[in-house]
Design a protein around this nucleic acid. Structure first.
Lengths: 254, 254
DNA sequence: GTAAACCCTGACGTTACGTCAGGGTCAAGA
DNA sequence: TCTTGACCCTGACGTAACGTCAGGGTTTAC
C-alpha cells in the first residue's frame, strides 16, 4: 500500500477515530481520493491537508456542516482560511490564559474567604465565539444576506450534493480553459455561456447572484491574487479570461 | 426577587442557555438551592461557584457525568480542583499557541509550494487530553482500580442518586459532630458505627473500601490540610475525631 | 493454510443540548 | 383591576457528532 495512507493510519496520525473519518466521508467533508478494489479508503496528501484544515476549524468550535460549507465555497481559499484560523487560535489561546487567570482569582477568593463578584466569575466565558470571525467573512463579501442564504441552503447538503457542486465548478473551469486554449475570444457566445453557467451554479447552489454581483466577483478574481491563483492553478491566464467572459456575459444580457 | 438570581439571569451571566441549566439540574450537576412557590429556580452564591467550576471542567473537555462524579466525590476539594484546572488551562493555552504555530507552518508550506511532513501536520492535535490529569488524581489515591470502579458506578447516577449521596455524607458528618460535642470518645461503639457507616457509604456508592484502605484515607484526612479543612468546616475538631473513629473501627473488626 | 490485524457497511445508542408546545407567573403600565 | 410582554415551568421530540457493535471481507506474516 504505497498509494497513500489507510484510514487507520490517518486516524492514528491525526488523533481521531476511524468512525470520525467514516463520518466525514459520509458528510462529504473529507472524501478520500481513492478506494481500493476491496473498498478500502486511501488518503493522499491533499486529503491530509483537507483534514488538517477541518481539524483546525473543529478545534475552533465550527460545526461540521459549517466547515463543509466554508471549504466547498467557490471562493474558498486555503491560505486565506489558514490566516483566519491563525488569528482565531491566537485569540483562543489568549482566552484560555485569561481563564487560567480567572481560576487564580477564584483561588485567591476562596483562600481569602472573599466573595467573588458574579460578573467577574464568568467574565472569561463566552469571550470566544466563531461567529464573530464569520462576520468578518461577511464583510469581505459585502453581502450579509448572501452569506446567510448560503448557510441556510447548504446546511443539509449531503456528500452527493457536495460532489455535484465540485463537478459543476470543475466543468465550467475546464470548458473555459479549453476555449482559452482554442483562442476563442472571451466575448464569444461559447465563453459567455460558460460564464453564465458559472453564475447559475453559484446562484443555484449557494446564494442569489445577480449580473451586477457577478461582475463584482469577476473584478475580485483578478484584483485579489489569491483568487487569481485559484484559477491560474487550473490554467494559465484563466483568471483574466474568466473575468472578461463574465463582464461580456453581463453586458450581453442587457 | 432578592434571594438570588433567576435562571435567565444566570444564563446570561455565564453565557450558557436556559436549557443548559435545566439540563444540569436534571442531571443533579447543578441543582439550584431554592425553588419559589411558583417553581422558579433561584441560584445563590454557592450555586454560582459550582457553575463556574462546572464550566471550567467543561471547557477542559470533561463530560458532564465525569464532572458530576468529580464534584460529588467525598474527597472533592474546591481549592485542589481549582489548582488542577489552572494547570490544565495553562496547558491548553499553550496547545492553542502551538496550534497557531502549526497553522503558520502550513501557511509557509503552502506559499513555498513545499510538501509538509504528515506527522508535522497533525502534531498539535491530540496533545491535550483531560485523561492525563485524571491519572494524576489516580496517583493521589494510589489506587487505579478504585478510580475506575468509581467512574464505572457513577456513570449513570441520576439527580436523585447524587442527592442521596450528599444526604448520606452529611448524615455521618452531623452524627459524628454531635458525638464529638457530647464528649463521646472516638472508640465508643457509637462513634465507630458512624465511621463504619462512612466506610460503607463510599464502598457502596463509589468503590470498594477495605478497612486498611479506610485507615489510609483517615490518615490523609489529618495529614492533608485541605481535607482537614473540609471536616473542620462542618465542626471544629471533626477531622481528628473522624480519623480516630476510623482507626478504632478498623481495630474493632479484627 | 491459519490467525491476527485491519478494513468494509449498516445501524442502534449516547451525549449535550436545541427547539417547540402548552401553560403558569411576575411586573409595569393603562 | 386588567392587560400585556417578558420570563418561568415541564414535557418531549429532534439534532449533531460521533461511540459501539454486528457481521463479514481483506491483507500480511508465520
Amino acid at each position: 500500500m504505497v498509494l497513500g495512507l489507510t484510514i487507520g493510519e490517518v486516524a492514528e496520525l491525526a488523533s481521531v477515530s476511524v468512525r470520525t473519518l467514516h463520518h466525514y466521508d459520509e458528510l462529504g467533508l473529507l472524501v478520500p481520493s481513492l478506494r481500493t478494489e476491496a473498498g478500502y479508503r486511501v488518503y493522499d496528501d491533499a486529503d491530509l491537508a483537507t483534514l488538517q484544515q477541518v481539524l483546525f476549524f473543529k478545534e475552533l468550535g465550527f460545526g461540521l456542516a459549517e466547515i463543509a460549507r466554508i471549504m466547498h465555497d467557490p471562493h474558498f481559499d486555503r491560505l486565506e482560511a489558514l490566516h483566519m484560523q491563525h488569528r482565531m487560535l491566537v485569540d483562543k489561546s489568549t482566552q484560555m490564559a485569561l481563564m487560567a487567570e480567572a481560576v487564580d482569582a477564584a483561588i485567591d477568593a476562596t483562600e481569602g474567604g472573599v466573595r467573588m463578584d458574579a460578573e467577574d466569575m464568568f467574565e472569561a466565558f463566552g469571550e470566544f465565539d466563531p461567529k464573530e470571525y464569520e462576520e468578518e467573512a461577511e464583510e469581505r463579501w459585502g453581502n450579509t444576506d448572501a452569506y446567510k442564504e448560503s448557510a441556510r441552503r447548504t446546511k443539509r447538503y449531503t456528500k452527493e450534493d457536495w460532489i455535484e457542486v465540485r463537478k459543476e465548478t470543475e466543468a465550467v473551469n475546464e470548458a473555459l480553459a479549453s476555449l482559452l486554449d482554442a483562442g476563442v475570444p472571451a466575448d464569444d457566445p461559447r465563453a459567455m455561456d460558460q460564464a453564465e453557467q458559472h453564475r447559475v451554479n453559484i446562484d443555484k447552489r449557494f446564494y442569489p447572484v445577480s449580473r451586477e454581483m457577478h461582475v463584482g466577483l469577476a473584478e475580485m478574481y483578478i484584483a485579489d491574487p489569491r483568487f487569481a491563483a485559484n484559477y491560474e492553478k487550473v490554467h494559465a491566464g484563466l483568471a483574466q479570461y474568466m473575468h472578461d467572459a463574465i463582464l461580456a456575459n453581463a453586458a450581453r444580457k442587457k
